[in-house]
Design a protein around this nucleic acid. Structure first.
Lengths: 338, 338
DNA sequence: GCCTTGAATGCAACCGTTTGCAAAATAGTA
DNA sequence: TACTATTTTGCAAACGGTTGCATTCAAGGC
């Protein structure tokens, strides 16, 4: 079928090992033979068989991207993470294998089936809800991996995540600076680490400015149903006997829903009520009014996580194995300008 | 490192080939030994080395997902395609390798480097702008592939795509039924096949209803900059000496931009001007007014394309190798209700 | 001219499977 | 019991590379 070392060797009239060395640019052979062999290989359109190579090198030059069970990767966030990963991986000659947990019986070993089958050299894991027990299993397997978008305190576990605590904090601070004291929040599901962390940032900001946390101003929504959740939860907040003067929505989708609820009530944004979102999705800039929000940096998250994994694979111990990617406040009109 | 056949063989006190047969459920061996070996393998936590397997079977059980050069896969469309692909592939025991063309020198063989290195068994190609010459090269390599989201007339080339001609037609028909005779369009770049096809549908609809095509009502935009493009192009259409009474935008993002332009002009949607979009992104339902649009079925596109590829890999000749996935009209308010 | 040295090449084992064929074990038959 | 037919198992050669070690060869030193 394909061209092999053996065939090249026969034509070049040398031993197969010489061919191998020529192709691997070994210093052991003459420039002359090297050139000759390279020319023939080129001519014959030779490509090394990665399976055979991997078999002896114990490497597959492939990285696994492990996705959650029912992977809802809508939105540009995931695409951007993927772009970051892709960029680093091609630069370093790695391929990306994507695999998501089906939850079926036969993959109860997921994702270890991939690692043990030597299909991948390391894993990038995106899983908001990954059980800690699995993490420990991963460590025991001594299998290189890094967690994406989930900050894990355990110093032994590589991770790179968006700085959600910071994000929650600066969003809240922005509202406080605008003079708000009763700030409602609509979170995502608390099964998501992101919700916890942003919430933590919110409370930190409150505390620093010596504002009390009022549990009745908090509504738990669902990221997956952003807009609906936003309207529903905002309704409840607006029906509060002493309603908030500002709402911090944990995603732009939720914010969009909230804006709708506010408008339905006949209230004006930002005059009657301020709204801040999270994510800076494309449409946010085009809402009426344009949404003030927190912008994450998914490309960098992907980029850095892949870099970290490759560093580990090459036994370059990365300087830091816990990365928090900063977020930025994007001021538009929904909380009042400047 | 990992457990191998040899180690199992030693413990079970049988030959390595017997172990291999036991694990592959060969009918050549006793149930008894089979059970014994399986138990030991389980116990030792054995996983077959896929590289070694692939080396002899000439298969990698991996499918390549080939992405365009600078892959802008924002939006839910790609995620949904991917979900469809993933579902079929895991059902059939295949892994997915993603690879995008970097355009660098060393991958001038892309994507053939992957195929020839035996890293993948077949490819799913997403590339709006793929040159036909490359296609011919693909055929010559006799390498199984299917084109995603691009309909190619050549009967020998597998493809599954959204039915853009139909989409363009029903969108236009909807506007005509609403009484519009001057229908402006804002296309995407004509480097994209999707633009051509939707445009073809538009013209077909016009022709059937005996309306003339007016070139001055057409604006070429860019999908990648949907909202901006939408506003810009809509502006131009509105400045027309005899402006259109309806606008067919080739994406919902473009439609959003167009709606803004229309509102800026102080015109009412749909009374003064009707707008129809394409894609049915999540936010479309939440715009004011909610956007009438064409809904594609990206999950099915992914699903069917992967199925087609696997069929070919298994030498099951697929019934059809040209699939057009139907689209649906989603009526909301931006062209007037029912 | 012979011996040492170092560079270039060849030989062969190995990576972990699969699989055709030979060998052994078992069952079936006369 | 001996002999054939049939399972079941073992042997060894692939698959396509890499790599330590042995070998060859040419050059340099005496």
């Amino acid at each position: 079928m394909s061209v092999t070392l053996k065939e090249i060797a026969k034509i070049a009239n040398v031993n197969i090992s010489t061919v191998s060395r020529a192709l691997n640019d070994s210093p052991l052979i003459t420039q002359e033979t090297k050139d000759k062999i390279l020319a023939i290989a080129q001519e014959m359109n030779y490509f090394p068989n990665s399976l055979a190579r991997g078999l002896v090198s114990h490497k597959s030059e492939t990285l696994g991207l492990i996705l959650p069970k029912i992977f809802f990767l809508q939105g540009p966030f995931f695409s951007e993470v993927l772009r970051g990963i892709e960029q680093v991986s091609v630069e370093n000659g790695y391929n990306i294998l994507i695999a998501s947990d089906t939850g079926k019986d036969r993959d109860k070993n997921f994702p270890f089936n991939l690692t043990r089958a030597k299909r991948i050299d390391g894993m990038l894991i995106i899983n908001e809800q990954q059980r800690i027990s699995n993490l420990i299993a991963l460590k025991k397997e001594r299998f290189p991996f890094v967690f994406i978008n989930r900050y894990i305190k355990d110093q032994d576990i590589n991770c790179v995540a968006s700085n959600n605590v910071q994000g929650g904090k600066i969003a809240t601070e922005h509202l406080i600076e605008k003079g708000h004291k009763r700030i409602g929040i609509i979170t995502g599901s608390f099964e998501m680490a992101a919700s916890h962390e942003r919430f933590e940032g919110y409370r930190n900001a409150l505390k620093e400015k010596e504002l009390v946390f009022d549990k009745s101003l908090m509504q738990e929504g669902m990221f997956e149903q952003g807009i609906e959740t936003g309207t529903d939860c905002a309704m409840k907040l607006l029906e509060h006997e002493e309603p908030p003067t500002a709402i911090f929505a944990f995603s732009d989708e939720i914010a969009i829903g909230a804006m709708q609820a506010v408008k339905n009530k006949g209230l004006k944004i930002p005059d009657d009520i301020a709204i801040i979102g999270y994510d800076n999705i494309e449409y946010s800039a085009h809402l009426t009014p344009p949404l003030t929000t927190i912008s994450q940096d998914p490309f960098t998250i992907g980029y850095e996580s892949c870099q970290m994994l490759i560093d580990e694979l090459c036994d370059r111990k990365p300087a830091k194995n816990h990365l928090q990617i900063p977020v930025k406040l994007v001021v538009r009109d929904s909380c009042g300008t400047e």
